[in-house]
Design a protein around this nucleic acid. Structure first.
Lengths: 219, 219
DNA sequence: ACCTGAACACCGTTCAAGT
DNA sequence: ACCTGAACACCGTTCAAGT
């Protein structure tokens, strides 16, 4: 993301305070959102913490929303990597798909700051952030690919894989959001049980009609 | 909500400007959020629009978050009514349950301002807002009741109805959020088709194992 | 009981100016 | 090419004071 667009300065020479203020700003934003919430992120505090002026951000981003978009872009790339690892680790079988669903929700739980920025409505102008759109599409494509593979194994319904993926995405996304928003209380039982149960219900919902148990299909 | 807690003044006498500034503030907040977004809601603008001072709100709410909590409370009551209507209109059958799911997402699409305040993370202190918690629980209970009824009809899996409800809620919530956030583009096909498809997949996911077609179950 | 108006401590953003 | 510092136009909230 940064390597093709931001040329490395030949000699940093420690001018002012930073060699890569852009990256430092994104890191600082993530740290602040994680520790103090997204409302606590102010350009003034971020600048002061990095030993830089309150307006230094404007040399690297058009505005504050662009900084949040960079956080979201990073989040989608992390999410894609997480999903791909879960999928390949299980060698693409049914258990791998289940692990992929669980991994999605776990990602949101481990990185609620990223996830909230990714889906919290802070970035409304997706057209103005092509990198964000690209990374988000790539993460979605990982899900579509997994579904196509499952269809070839005859364990998932033979319907438009993108439509199937939209349903699965909506279901795990809702689960992730409600979880990190604290909508499930302790009296609702262990959250891990709920996540495992929900992913199982999702798989049942998209399972091929006569392939509940692994069996050689006719034809 | 207001009738038991706010006694009607015996004679309004048009003191200052309003007889029910509290209700007017909630209405104005909903209007602003709907027309200009939640960020555009400022106490100063709301006061000016109602012909009242910028600090008049503090006679009726502890702070701005409490005003948003009131909007969310109203939203959950509207949602519950919507779900109950969809359920009773179909006389509690399988089609009624499907209609309930579709009605949930339609509510979010028709009232995105309410829905975003209900789930957008603006109200984090749920304990401090007992009315909000009560209304949210009531809406969830409508879903649980419908699932219990479906279990009695032997068309839904005989598992903890609250756990089943949490899954269904997560799925329709995710679908609603992604829809009102504009995550589904035009090239993804008609949004109504996606919603109908997703609700169908949810029903398949929670369907009783051997009751895909209506048939008298063996004892 | 309900509302005002000034004041306080913040914001994001702009812009002329510095190195 | 990158950063500063003052300034502008806003915020939510507090509080003494008004009716």
């Amino acid at each position: 993301m940064t390597s093709p667009s931001v040329p490395i300065p030949k000699k940093p020479r420690t001018r002012y305070h930073h060699g890569d203020l852009r990256r430092a700003l994104v890191s600082e934003a993530v740290r602040t959102i994680r520790e103090e919430g997204v409302d606590a992120l102010t350009l003034r505090a971020a600048g002061k913490r990095l030993g830089v002026s309150q307006t230094a951000l404007y040399r690297h981003f058009p505005d504050k929303a662009a900084l949040l978009a960079a956080v979201a872009t990073e989040g989608f790339r992390m999410l894609r990597v997480t999903l791909d690892e879960a999928w390949s680790h299980g060698r693409g079988g049914i258990k791998a798909f289940h692990a992929m669903g669980v991994a999605y929700v776990r990602f949101a739980r481990l990185n609620p700051s990223h996830y909230r920025v990714m889906f919290g409505g802070f970035v409304d102008d997706l057209i103005a952030e092509p990198e964000l759109h690209t990374e988000a599409s790539a993460a979605f494509q990982s899900l579509v690919d997994a579904i196509v593979a499952q269809q070839h194994l005859r364990v998932v319904r033979h319907e438009d894989p993108e439509q199937v993926a939209r349903f699965v995405w909506a279901a795990v996304h809702g689960l992730a959001m409600l979880t990190i928003d604290g909508r499930f209380g302790k009296h609702d039982g262990p959250i891990d049980d709920l996540i495992d149960y929900a992913v199982t219900r999702i798989r049942t919902g998209i399972a091929a009609e006569r392939a509940t148990t692994a069996r050689a299909p006719r034809r």
